[in-house]
Design a protein around this nucleic acid. Structure first.
Lengths: 251, 251
DNA sequence: CCCCGGCTTTGACTTTAATCAAGGAATGAG
DNA sequence: CTCATTCCTTGATTAAAGTCAAAGCCGGGG
């Protein structure tokens, strides 16, 4: 990105340590210290945040924040998949994003959530009080930079998905979804990856703007054409990611 | 938002002026100094930027940036409407956002544009070289904060639109579009607003994930039901914005 | 082990929007 | 003014996805 400091740890160098250099014990092995927002914080900032943070495990299907609710905490996703969705008054629902570890969960500077965040799989988060984060953002430009970066990434993803929702066929939509999951869950495998779907057919339908039945039919077709292999409904193998990508309409 | 300085002008106060207080002549009446990113810059910063900036008028249908092109400048929209769109290899297109004055146009920290920006109406922009803005972002936290704010706004809008694309009927989509334009072009009018559509039927179709014919049919229906009045294809009057909002599925 | 519940698949039929095909207004050039 | 072009509307037909209904699969509890 630009010239801002990325907050590398100085653990290795033997020198006279200050508070800023000491990483709290619980943070050391934490996923969020890698790619997450905590990677731009120094030791004393981590210590401050850590004192107010609480780790929570969330069962699939449990809401983290509800649409229209007041938000009093933000969090880092440490494990699992969180779905962000919007609901219309008559119950129609659309999933507008999926978040994976170590994403930051929450929309800064907005008291009321315009969407629902719900665990799709077993999920672990590290939650902070609203005020603690906002104070830290205000006097840590690097943190705001990091958050800005995530929001730009989410914006790119949202716009990609708008193309999928508006212009792709049911078949292409399902293939696009499988491709999205494949590249997020099994990022290294360029060829022949395998994973468990984090979403039920109903969730997939809500993500793709389709019905359960249509998702099921298209999955069956892709299976019969050997673009994917499916075991036990949830477990998918993609023998050739390029073929899947082609089925998704990305030439 | 938070406690960051919003960069108010000090023109009025009689005191010993520094360079920072003097607003360049051309910026004084500029829309971007109001809500745009220039509102967080001081006089000397505006002067620096101003020296490298160029105002340009862009005809409808002209590309500002092309999908896949390298980006070497960013700009402020001073007048008009810019459409952001994505195209698939086979020509299917989706408009993924509309930008109005005084929005900032460009995606910081990405060399290559993932979308096309094209003037929808006669548009005026103030363009800056890439490097000038990025340097200024790096040492002006208030500027990055402002840009972050715009990106969060765009993300909210993108997600709202995902619900429209994925879950609304053709009628609701068209009504949603009209509502969006009504609230952006004629923001004060709570009741009985009137405006010119900035987009052709083809563009509206590309924004809504529909065909031209379906857009036209739904416009006709809404006209026959007196939800809207249409003159000369482009000029629309909304007698009751709540009825339009209801037709858009927002109860 | 079997039964029950939820999730998923499959089939028959309906509905919505897309496609194909004319025809009609508005705009601009000559 | 007239013609040509582009944009928009309307109608008839088709295709894609939705709805309704039933049956299969899988996992957990008794």
């Amino acid at each position: 990105m630009n010239g801002l400091r990325i907050g590398e740890t100085m653990d290795e160098k033997p020198h006279f340590a200050t508070d800023d250099d000491v990483i709290p014990q619980v943070c050391r092995a934490c996923e969020a210290r890698h790619g997450g927002i905590c990677s731009v914080l120094n030791g004393s900032q981590l210590a401050v945040l850590n004192k107010q943070s609480s780790k929570r495990t969330i069962d699939p299907g449990t809401e983290v924040v509800g649409q229209g609710e007041n938000v009093n905490s933000y969090s880092n996703i440490l494990r699992g998949v969180v779905k962000l969705s919007k609901m219309m008054a008559d119950g129609r629902q659309q999933i507008v994003g999926l978040q994976f570890a170590p994403d930051f969960l929450g929309r800064p500077f907005s008291r009321e959530s315009s969407l629902t965040a719900e665990a799709a799989t077993a999920t672990e988060i590290c939650a902070f009080p609203r005020a603690a984060i906002e104070r830290m953002i205000a006097d840590t430009p690097g943190l705001e930079h990091k958050l800005y970066g995530q929001s730009l990434k989410e914006l790119d993803e949202a716009r990609d998905w708008m193309l999928t929702l508006g212009r792709k066929t049911a078949r292409e939509k399902v293939a696009s979804f499988l491709h999205l999951i494949a590249t997020h869950i099994d990022p290294e495998a360029d060829d022949g990856c395998t994973f468990d779907l984090p979403l039920s057919r109903a969730d997939i339908a809500d993500f793709l703007g389709l019905t359960i039945e249509t998702v099921s039919r298209q999955m069956t077709k892709l299976r019969k054409e050997k673009v994917i292999l499916v075991e036990n409904n949830r477990h998918v193998t993609v023998p050739d990611i390029d073929r899947l990508n082609e089925a998704a309409g990305n030439d």
